[in-house]
Simulated scan of single mutants.
Amino acid sequence: MTLAVALGAATIPLATVWGVILNKLSIVLIAPTWSAGQESIIWDVRLPRVLLAAFVGAGLALVGAVLQPLTRNPLADPHLLGVSSGASFGAILALLHTGLIFGATTVPLFAFAGALGATALVLMVARLTSSATVDRLVLSGVAVSFVIASLANLLIFLGDPRAQHTVVFWMLGGLGLAQWGHLAYPGLALFGGLVVLMFQAASLNGLALGDETATSLGLRVQRLRLELFTLTALLTGVMVAFSGAIGFVGLMVPHITRLLVGSDNHRVLPVAASLGATGLVIADLVARIIIRPEDMPIGVITGLVGGVMFIVVLRRKH
């Protein structure tokens, strides 16, 4: 994270990075040897962005680590139940049609509302179609995701062509919205979700063995699954609302984690969160410096690296 703050279009010494941070936090007062511009780059631009990358990476990896044993599907990831499509719909609506009616928080608010709406719609479709089993619940999510994605594409088609480049960048993932005032939401969602899920780690171990085994262990399978689906959807909605749609983190990191620490979710959940945070910080650093001073959408980096690493993981498991 220190390197990610120091490196970019303008490289800043590591000592200067920590000097600014310690001064701002009033931990150790150091006589400034840096310019006001360097201080602004570190404190106002890069540090919030790096923290947001860590929160989002940890959150997406955590959701993937929960959904894979929950659905017993190795391809499950945070975008499985249409949450990402719902968030994209809300963000596109704000960017192309309503304008920034709530100021800088408009896009995250609309994206989060879209994610919540998609989650509610999936649960409603599952109830209407009596989709109590995990396979049918996932299929309901896939169907809703396609419908919402089609509506989002319609919004793009009807929107102002001059503003569509911002939508494309957001849909490919980006951390340009990072501000100190926004960090509380993904931060609280991450740590609150991690605490709750750690208490459910033993239940997740049971669900991974199958519904019959989980029931014999005393678990209320359908209720527990819906509760965990809702929690992961909320966590995904918060993360996607501030970062856009970033792929492969929630799919790839849990598999790498299980290669390292096994399948016990008491170990998998915190390690996956740590690896996800580290991985997305590095991916964002690469996205910022590879074509500097321009930013490459971070989803391009995670897709390229994630796809290759996932093939390697599959090969090792074989």
Rank of each mutant, 00 (worst) to 15 (best):
L70G: 05
T71N: 11
T71P: 05
R72T: 08
R72A: 07
R72G: 07
N73M: 10
N73E: 05
L75E: 08
L75R: 13
A76E: 01
A76Q: 07
A76W: 00
A76G: 04
D77F: 02
D77N: 14
H79K: 05
L81Y: 11
L81T: 04
G82T: 01
S85H: 07
S85A: 14
S85G: 11
G86M: 02
A87M: 10
A87T: 03
S88K: 01
S88A: 15
S88Q: 07
F89P: 03
F89Y: 10
F89C: 07
G90I: 02
G90S: 10
G90T: 05
G90Y: 01
A91Q: 09
A91S: 13
A91F: 06
A91C: 10
A91K: 05
A91G: 06
I92V: 15
I92T: 15
I92D: 02
I92S: 05
A94H: 01
L95Y: 09
L95M: 15
L95C: 11
L95V: 11
L95N: 01
L95E: 04
L96Q: 13
L96W: 09
H97N: 12
H97P: 14
T98W: 14
T98D: 06
T98Q: 12
T98N: 12
G99W: 13
G99E: 06
G99Q: 12
L100M: 14
L100T: 14
L100E: 14
L100P: 08
L100C: 08
L100H: 12
I101V: 15
I101H: 11
I101E: 10
F102N: 09
G103M: 11
G103P: 07
G103L: 12
A104I: 13
A104T: 15
A104Q: 14
T105C: 11
T106N: 08
T106C: 10
T106G: 12
T106V: 08
T106S: 13
T106K: 10
P108D: 05
P108S: 09
L109K: 04
L109F: 12
L109H: 03
L109E: 03
A111F: 08
A111D: 06
A111S: 13
A111R: 03
F112D: 02
F112W: 04
F112L: 13
A113M: 10
A113V: 13
G114I: 01
G114A: 11
G114S: 11
G114N: 04
G114V: 02
A115C: 08
A115I: 05
A115D: 02
A115T: 05
L116F: 04
G117Y: 00
G117H: 00
G117E: 02
A118K: 01
A118T: 04
T119N: 09
T119H: 03
A120Q: 02
L121C: 04
L121Y: 00
L121D: 01
V122L: 04
V122K: 00
L123Y: 07
M124P: 00
M124H: 07
M124S: 06
M124K: 04
V125I: 14
V125M: 08
A126F: 02
A126V: 06
A126I: 02
A126P: 10
R127W: 09
R127A: 10
R127V: 05
R127P: 03
T129L: 05
T129R: 15
S130D: 15
S131W: 04
A132L: 12
A132H: 14
A132F: 12
A132V: 15
T133N: 15
T133Q: 14
V134Q: 09
V134F: 06
V134P: 03
D135H: 14
D135T: 15
D135Y: 12
D135M: 13
